[in-house]
Simulated scan of single mutants.
Amino acid sequence: MRRNLEDKGLDLIIYSSLIILAFLTLYPFWNSLAISFNAGADTARGGITFWPREFTFANYEYVFDDERLINGFMITIIRTVLGTLLSISFTAAFGYAMAKRGLIGKKYYMIFCVVTMYFHGGLIPTYLLIRELNMMNTIWVMVIPTMINVWHMIIFRTFFQQLPDGLEESAKIDGCSNAGVFFKIVVPVSGPVIATLSLFTAVFHWNAWFDAVIYITKEDLVPLQTLLTQIINSVMNDTMDQLSNTEQEMLDQLNAVTHKSVVMATMMVATIPIMMVYPFVQKYFVKGVLIGSLKE
């Protein structure tokens, strides 16, 4: 089919809009990356756009000089993996149960769940509860409170309701239990929704930092994001301490590292690892969008 001038003009508008949108989305990240590799004093002059003007690794050296960083990476990885596995497992099982038509009291269970989306118990009652459960200064305090995500449960429930009833009926005829149907039939065909929600959950755990500030006092259990906020705050304190040094020493230090340059470096350290996961899950996003869009 030959394309007329109107079709070509429409394509031009669409592609131009997408290019502008991609630029507006990617430029802030690229600019932050360039600043993180630029000397601090030169960054303060402004004008850094796409490339560092005075290339240096001093900002990253300042960040990685902290011996707690490697331990923080390990704690964050453990929290992300463990938290994602537990959250997806329990939330998917909850969603599967809520998808059953014959579940007694399902309407009331749903009301109780939705209420928790709008009302929170409060920081002080939550802190007292965590303390009474003896979860302070443990890895579980960063995992157990987030094991059930109501919004993800609703997504799981909606997905499970779209599965053909014949799948479960045929499995039960062969003697499969409810648990067997869930793990052997439902879970294998739920790859797209599991992968998508696993990514969202992993990003949440990777970026979380506030709960560790409240519930963690041991330095060997501090996750990466909490540690990086401490590093950023220490840069501000170090800058104030430099006022007692000689003018030349202060100038030499500021030429390499400033508060803004270290902030950008810590941002890259915290962001790039989790961004590397997205390309491996991208195909599930596309497949997940198509699920339920076609009817036989």
Rank of each mutant, 00 (worst) to 15 (best):
F94W: 11
L294F: 14
L129M: 15
I216L: 12
L82I: 12
F94R: 02
H259A: 11
H259S: 11
Y109I: 09
G40F: 06
S177C: 04
T76H: 08
G40Q: 05
L197N: 10
G175V: 05
I185F: 06
L133Y: 08
Y278H: 04
T158P: 01
I232L: 15
F29K: 02
L86K: 03
I124T: 08
A256T: 01
N134T: 07
P188E: 09
A256N: 07
D220C: 07
I232Q: 11
M275S: 03
F37T: 09
M135K: 06
T158N: 15
M268E: 01
L103S: 03
G166I: 06
F200A: 03
Y127S: 05
I216P: 00
Y118H: 10
V286T: 12
Y127V: 08
L199V: 01
P279R: 03
F73H: 01
I14Q: 04
S87Q: 12
T146S: 13
Y127R: 02
F37R: 01
S293G: 06
M117T: 10
E54S: 14
F73D: 02
M264S: 09
D238S: 11
G105H: 10
Y62C: 00
L129F: 11
F159S: 06
P273F: 02
K287M: 11
Y109N: 11
V115M: 15
N237E: 13
I48H: 05
F37Q: 02
F159Y: 14
Q242F: 13
G166V: 07
G166T: 13
A270W: 04
K8P: 00
I148N: 05
W30K: 00
R45V: 11
I78F: 13
L228V: 15
N4Q: 07
K172Q: 15
Y284D: 02
L228R: 09
T271F: 06
Y15E: 02
L18R: 02
T201R: 13
F64S: 01
L167A: 07
V193S: 07
I19Q: 04
A93P: 02
L10F: 13
L12E: 00
N255I: 00
P52E: 06
N237M: 12
T226K: 02
N4W: 05
G122H: 04
E219D: 15
Q225K: 09
I274Q: 05
L129P: 01
G191M: 12
E219R: 15
P223Y: 03
I75L: 09
T239R: 13
T80E: 05
Y108N: 07
C176L: 05
M74T: 14
M98V: 02
V269D: 00
I78K: 13
E6I: 11
V281R: 04
P125H: 06
G47V: 07
T226M: 02
G122Y: 10
I70N: 10
S170V: 12
K184Q: 11
L129T: 13
E296Q: 09
K172F: 04
I20E: 03
S177Y: 10
